[in-house]
Computed example of a mutant assay.
Amino acid sequence: MKILHYFTPLLLLLAFSCTEKAATDSQNSVSTKGITTKDVTYNFNGNNYKSFVAYKGESEEPRPVVMIIPEWWGLTDYAKDRARQLAELGYFAMAVDYYGDGKTVNTPEEATKLSTPFYQIPINAKQVFDAARARLLEFPAANHNKIAVIGYCFGGAQALNMARQESDLKGAVSFHGNLMTGIKPKNNNVPLLICNGVDDTFVSAEEIAAFKKEMDSSHVKYTFIDYPNALHSFTNPASTAMGEKFEMKIAYNKAADEKSWNDMKKFLADIFK
Protein backbone atom coordinates (compact mmCIF):
# COMPACT_ATOMS: atom_id res chain seq x y z
CA MET A 1 0.00 0.00 0.00
CA LYS A 2 1.45 3.33 -1.03
CA ILE A 3 2.07 5.74 1.85
CA LEU A 4 1.32 9.37 1.11
CA HIS A 5 4.60 10.83 2.34
CA TYR A 6 3.68 14.41 1.60
CA PHE A 7 1.09 14.33 4.35
CA THR A 8 3.56 13.46 7.09
CA PRO A 9 4.99 16.97 7.67
CA LEU A 10 1.49 18.38 7.85
CA LEU A 11 -0.03 15.93 10.30
CA LEU A 12 0.80 17.83 13.48
CA LEU A 13 -0.18 21.18 12.01
CA LEU A 14 -3.44 19.85 10.61
CA ALA A 15 -4.38 18.36 13.94
CA PHE A 16 -4.36 21.88 15.31
CA SER A 17 -6.50 23.07 12.44
CA CYS A 18 -9.53 20.86 13.05
CA THR A 19 -11.36 22.53 15.87
CA GLU A 20 -12.35 20.73 19.00
CA LYS A 21 -15.99 21.64 19.62
CA ALA A 22 -18.82 23.63 18.12
CA ALA A 23 -19.94 26.62 20.13
CA THR A 24 -23.21 26.00 21.89
CA ASP A 25 -24.73 29.13 20.42
CA SER A 26 -23.61 28.27 16.88
CA GLN A 27 -25.88 29.49 14.12
CA ASN A 28 -25.90 25.88 12.99
CA SER A 29 -27.39 24.61 16.25
CA VAL A 30 -30.86 23.15 15.72
CA SER A 31 -33.74 22.02 17.88
CA THR A 32 -33.95 18.29 18.45
CA LYS A 33 -37.75 18.44 18.54
CA GLY A 34 -39.11 15.80 16.19
CA ILE A 35 -35.64 14.34 15.61
CA THR A 36 -34.86 10.83 16.80
CA THR A 37 -31.21 10.47 17.88
CA LYS A 38 -29.44 7.34 19.00
CA ASP A 39 -25.98 6.08 19.86
CA VAL A 40 -25.36 2.86 17.96
CA THR A 41 -22.75 0.42 19.16
CA TYR A 42 -21.00 -2.35 17.26
CA ASN A 43 -17.76 -4.30 17.28
CA PHE A 44 -15.13 -4.30 14.57
CA ASN A 45 -11.73 -5.95 14.62
CA GLY A 46 -11.98 -6.53 18.37
CA ASN A 47 -12.79 -2.88 19.15
CA ASN A 48 -16.06 -1.32 20.25
CA TYR A 49 -17.45 1.61 18.29
CA LYS A 50 -20.22 4.05 19.10
CA SER A 51 -21.56 6.09 16.19
CA PHE A 52 -24.50 8.48 16.30
CA VAL A 53 -27.62 8.49 14.15
CA ALA A 54 -30.33 11.09 13.68
CA TYR A 55 -33.52 11.03 11.64
CA LYS A 56 -36.83 12.81 11.67
CA GLY A 57 -39.74 11.12 13.43
CA GLU A 58 -40.28 7.43 14.08
CA SER A 59 -41.43 6.52 10.57
CA GLU A 60 -39.71 3.50 9.06
CA GLU A 61 -40.09 4.85 5.53
CA PRO A 62 -36.60 4.55 4.00
CA ARG A 63 -34.83 7.83 3.39
CA PRO A 64 -31.45 8.65 1.82
CA VAL A 65 -28.46 8.25 4.11
CA VAL A 66 -25.72 10.80 4.72
CA MET A 67 -22.72 9.51 6.63
CA ILE A 68 -20.58 12.14 8.37
CA ILE A 69 -16.87 11.70 9.02
CA PRO A 70 -15.83 14.03 11.86
CA GLU A 71 -12.80 16.23 12.36
CA TRP A 72 -9.53 14.96 13.81
CA TRP A 73 -10.90 15.37 17.31
CA GLY A 74 -13.29 12.43 17.02
CA LEU A 75 -17.03 12.20 17.45
CA THR A 76 -17.65 15.59 19.06
CA ASP A 77 -20.91 17.48 19.48
CA TYR A 78 -20.09 19.37 16.29
CA ALA A 79 -20.47 16.24 14.15
CA LYS A 80 -23.61 15.25 16.04
CA ASP A 81 -25.13 18.70 15.47
CA ARG A 82 -24.48 18.31 11.75
CA ALA A 83 -26.27 14.96 11.88
CA ARG A 84 -29.30 16.63 13.48
CA GLN A 85 -29.28 19.30 10.79
CA LEU A 86 -29.27 16.67 8.07
CA ALA A 87 -32.11 14.84 9.81
CA GLU A 88 -34.16 18.03 9.73
CA LEU A 89 -33.62 18.09 5.97
CA GLY A 90 -35.20 14.64 5.76
CA TYR A 91 -32.07 12.48 5.60
CA PHE A 92 -31.03 9.57 7.77
CA ALA A 93 -27.73 10.81 9.17
CA MET A 94 -24.93 8.88 10.81
CA ALA A 95 -21.89 10.54 12.40
CA VAL A 96 -19.20 7.86 12.28
CA ASP A 97 -17.00 6.94 15.22
CA TYR A 98 -13.50 6.49 13.81
CA TYR A 99 -11.48 6.08 17.01
CA GLY A 100 -13.65 3.61 18.94
CA ASP A 101 -15.92 4.02 21.97
CA GLY A 102 -17.01 7.41 20.63
CA LYS A 103 -13.61 8.72 21.66
CA THR A 104 -12.68 12.38 21.42
CA VAL A 105 -9.25 13.87 22.02
CA ASN A 106 -8.09 17.20 23.39
CA THR A 107 -4.54 17.61 22.14
CA PRO A 108 -2.95 17.79 18.69
CA GLU A 109 -0.57 15.01 19.70
CA GLU A 110 -3.45 12.63 20.43
CA ALA A 111 -5.24 13.61 17.23
CA THR A 112 -2.12 13.06 15.16
CA LYS A 113 -1.46 9.66 16.70
CA LEU A 114 -4.99 8.41 16.06
CA SER A 115 -5.52 9.89 12.60
CA THR A 116 -2.15 9.15 10.99
CA PRO A 117 -2.86 5.47 10.14
CA PHE A 118 -5.92 6.46 8.10
CA TYR A 119 -3.76 8.67 5.89
CA GLN A 120 -0.89 6.24 5.59
CA ILE A 121 -3.03 3.16 4.95
CA PRO A 122 -6.30 4.27 3.30
CA ILE A 123 -7.86 0.82 3.52
CA ASN A 124 -7.95 1.29 7.32
CA ALA A 125 -10.39 4.15 6.89
CA LYS A 126 -12.51 2.14 4.48
CA GLN A 127 -12.80 -0.75 6.90
CA VAL A 128 -13.99 1.48 9.74
CA PHE A 129 -16.42 3.17 7.38
CA ASP A 130 -17.77 -0.17 6.16
CA ALA A 131 -18.29 -1.38 9.74
CA ALA A 132 -20.43 1.68 10.47
CA ARG A 133 -22.23 1.32 7.17
CA ALA A 134 -23.11 -2.30 7.97
CA ARG A 135 -24.78 -1.09 11.16
CA LEU A 136 -27.22 0.88 9.01
CA LEU A 137 -28.75 -2.38 7.82
CA GLU A 138 -30.51 -2.62 11.17
CA PHE A 139 -32.48 0.57 10.54
CA PRO A 140 -35.53 0.25 8.28
CA ALA A 141 -35.59 4.05 8.03
CA ALA A 142 -32.23 4.05 6.22
CA ASN A 143 -32.27 3.59 2.45
CA HIS A 144 -29.25 1.36 1.97
CA ASN A 145 -29.26 1.96 -1.78
CA LYS A 146 -28.85 5.72 -1.42
CA ILE A 147 -25.79 6.60 0.64
CA ALA A 148 -23.57 9.67 0.47
CA VAL A 149 -20.69 10.74 2.69
CA ILE A 150 -19.60 14.18 3.90
CA GLY A 151 -16.69 15.17 6.10
CA TYR A 152 -14.86 18.03 7.77
CA CYS A 153 -11.07 18.58 7.81
CA PHE A 154 -9.74 15.05 8.43
CA GLY A 155 -13.24 13.86 7.64
CA GLY A 156 -13.28 15.76 4.36
CA ALA A 157 -10.11 14.00 3.25
CA GLN A 158 -11.59 10.67 4.28
CA ALA A 159 -14.86 11.39 2.47
CA LEU A 160 -12.82 11.69 -0.72
CA ASN A 161 -10.95 8.54 0.31
CA MET A 162 -14.29 6.71 0.52
CA ALA A 163 -15.40 8.02 -2.87
CA ARG A 164 -12.24 6.59 -4.41
CA GLN A 165 -12.87 3.17 -2.87
CA GLU A 166 -16.65 2.77 -2.46
CA SER A 167 -18.06 2.38 -5.97
CA ASP A 168 -21.73 2.44 -4.96
CA LEU A 169 -21.81 5.73 -3.06
CA LYS A 170 -24.11 8.34 -4.55
CA GLY A 171 -21.69 11.17 -3.81
CA ALA A 172 -19.13 12.70 -1.43
CA VAL A 173 -18.63 16.19 0.00
CA SER A 174 -15.43 17.54 1.52
CA PHE A 175 -15.48 20.66 3.70
CA HIS A 176 -11.99 22.22 4.07
CA GLY A 177 -10.36 18.79 3.85
CA ASN A 178 -7.09 17.74 2.31
CA LEU A 179 -7.44 16.25 -1.14
CA MET A 180 -5.58 12.95 -0.72
CA THR A 181 -3.98 13.03 -4.16
CA GLY A 182 -2.29 9.70 -4.84
CA ILE A 183 -5.18 7.28 -4.29
CA LYS A 184 -6.41 6.28 -7.72
CA PRO A 185 -10.22 6.32 -7.91
CA LYS A 186 -11.76 2.86 -8.13
CA ASN A 187 -14.20 4.15 -10.70
CA ASN A 188 -15.52 7.42 -12.06
CA ASN A 189 -19.12 7.05 -10.92
CA VAL A 190 -19.08 8.89 -7.58
CA PRO A 191 -19.60 12.64 -7.99
CA LEU A 192 -17.73 14.97 -5.65
CA LEU A 193 -18.29 18.40 -4.13
CA ILE A 194 -15.20 20.07 -2.71
CA CYS A 195 -15.79 23.11 -0.50
CA ASN A 196 -12.47 24.91 -0.12
CA GLY A 197 -11.43 28.17 1.50
CA VAL A 198 -9.52 30.50 -0.82
CA ASP A 199 -7.20 31.48 2.02
CA ASP A 200 -6.75 27.98 3.45
CA THR A 201 -3.02 27.65 4.04
CA PHE A 202 -3.33 23.93 4.81
CA VAL A 203 -4.40 23.08 1.26
CA SER A 204 -1.74 24.28 -1.14
CA ALA A 205 -2.18 25.41 -4.71
CA GLU A 206 0.01 22.47 -5.75
CA GLU A 207 -2.26 20.01 -3.94
CA ILE A 208 -5.33 21.51 -5.59
CA ALA A 209 -3.73 21.32 -9.03
CA ALA A 210 -2.67 17.71 -8.49
CA PHE A 211 -6.15 16.79 -7.30
CA LYS A 212 -7.85 18.35 -10.29
CA LYS A 213 -5.40 16.66 -12.66
CA GLU A 214 -6.09 13.30 -11.03
CA MET A 215 -9.85 13.74 -11.19
CA ASP A 216 -9.77 14.95 -14.79
CA SER A 217 -7.58 12.07 -15.92
CA SER A 218 -9.91 9.59 -14.19
CA HIS A 219 -13.00 11.29 -15.66
CA VAL A 220 -14.49 11.86 -12.22
CA LYS A 221 -17.38 14.29 -12.06
CA TYR A 222 -16.53 16.93 -9.46
CA THR A 223 -17.39 20.47 -8.46
CA PHE A 224 -14.67 22.51 -6.80
CA ILE A 225 -15.87 25.66 -5.05
CA ASP A 226 -13.57 28.27 -3.51
CA TYR A 227 -15.09 30.49 -0.82
CA PRO A 228 -13.62 34.01 -0.59
CA ASN A 229 -11.80 35.12 2.54
CA ALA A 230 -12.20 31.68 4.11
CA LEU A 231 -9.40 30.11 6.12
CA HIS A 232 -9.12 26.47 7.13
CA SER A 233 -11.94 25.08 9.31
CA PHE A 234 -14.26 27.86 8.14
CA THR A 235 -17.48 25.93 8.96
CA ASN A 236 -16.87 25.49 12.69
CA PRO A 237 -17.75 28.42 14.98
CA ALA A 238 -15.16 27.26 17.52
CA SER A 239 -12.29 27.54 15.06
CA THR A 240 -11.60 31.25 15.63
CA ALA A 241 -10.89 30.76 19.33
CA MET A 242 -8.81 27.68 18.61
CA GLY A 243 -6.84 29.57 16.01
CA GLU A 244 -6.06 32.30 18.52
CA LYS A 245 -5.14 29.74 21.18
CA PHE A 246 -2.66 27.89 19.00
CA GLU A 247 -1.65 30.81 16.76
CA MET A 248 -2.91 28.98 13.70
CA LYS A 249 -4.45 30.40 10.54
CA ILE A 250 -7.93 29.00 11.11
CA ALA A 251 -11.17 30.89 11.65
CA TYR A 252 -14.91 30.64 11.32
CA ASN A 253 -16.45 32.36 8.32
CA LYS A 254 -20.23 32.67 8.60
CA ALA A 255 -20.78 33.53 4.95
CA ALA A 256 -18.64 30.62 3.72
CA ASP A 257 -20.26 28.26 6.22
CA GLU A 258 -23.79 29.11 5.11
CA LYS A 259 -22.93 29.16 1.41
CA SER A 260 -21.13 25.80 1.53
CA TRP A 261 -24.00 24.22 3.47
CA ASN A 262 -26.46 25.44 0.83
CA ASP A 263 -24.17 24.15 -1.92
CA MET A 264 -24.13 20.78 -0.16
CA LYS A 265 -27.93 20.75 0.11
CA LYS A 266 -28.27 21.27 -3.63
CA PHE A 267 -25.65 18.61 -4.32
CA LEU A 268 -27.45 16.05 -2.14
CA ALA A 269 -30.81 16.85 -3.70
CA ASP A 270 -29.31 16.28 -7.14
CA ILE A 271 -27.56 12.99 -6.41
CA PHE A 272 -30.56 11.51 -4.58
CA LYS A 273 -33.08 12.23 -7.35
Rank of each mutant, 00 (worst) to 15 (best):
I225V: 04
P62T: 11
P191S: 00
N45Q: 01
A95P: 07
T201E: 10
T19W: 04
L4G: 01
I147P: 04
A255M: 10
P237T: 03
G34I: 08
K113Q: 01
T8R: 14
K146V: 05
D257T: 15
I147C: 05
F211S: 06
D200M: 10
D199R: 04
F139V: 06
E61G: 07
G177Q: 04
F139I: 12
E20K: 14
E247M: 15
V66H: 02
E214H: 03
K221W: 01
C18I: 07
S115N: 07
I147Y: 10
F52K: 08
P185F: 10
A255F: 15
H176P: 06
P62L: 03
G182H: 05
T41K: 06
C153G: 09
I35P: 05
Q158C: 15
D39G: 14
A269T: 15
V149W: 04
Y78A: 09
L231T: 06
N253F: 05
D101N: 07
A230N: 02
V220I: 12
I121R: 01
E110Y: 04
C153W: 03
K259N: 09
P191M: 01
F16H: 10
W72I: 10
A142S: 02
S59Q: 11
G155V: 01
A210R: 08
F267V: 08
G74K: 00
I123N: 08
A141N: 07
F175H: 07
N145E: 10
W72P: 14
R84N: 05
D97W: 01
K170V: 03
L179D: 02
A23T: 15
A205Y: 13
D97R: 05
P237K: 03
Q120W: 14
S29M: 15
L169Y: 00
K254Y: 03
L89G: 05
E88K: 13
T8N: 13
G243W: 04
T24L: 13
E244S: 12
A159T: 04
A23F: 14
S218K: 02
E88A: 11
D130G: 09
E61K: 06
A241P: 13
K38R: 11
E110D: 05
E109Y: 15
H232S: 09
E110Q: 09
F272K: 01
R135M: 08
S167D: 11
A148C: 07
D130R: 11
L10F: 11
K80Y: 00
C153N: 09
Q165I: 08
L86Q: 03
D199P: 13
A209D: 03
A269E: 14
D81G: 14
N124P: 08
W261N: 14
K186Y: 02
N161K: 06
Y49Q: 01
A141K: 02
M248S: 07
K146F: 04
N262C: 10
Y98H: 11
A172H: 07
L13A: 15
I3W: 07
I3M: 14
G243D: 03
N229D: 13
I150M: 03
Q127K: 07
N124L: 15
Y55E: 06
V66C: 06
M248L: 06
D270W: 11
T8P: 06
R63W: 03
S217P: 12
T104M: 09
G171Y: 05
F272N: 05
N178G: 08
A205P: 14
C18R: 15
N196G: 13
N48G: 02
D257I: 15
K170W: 02
E61I: 11
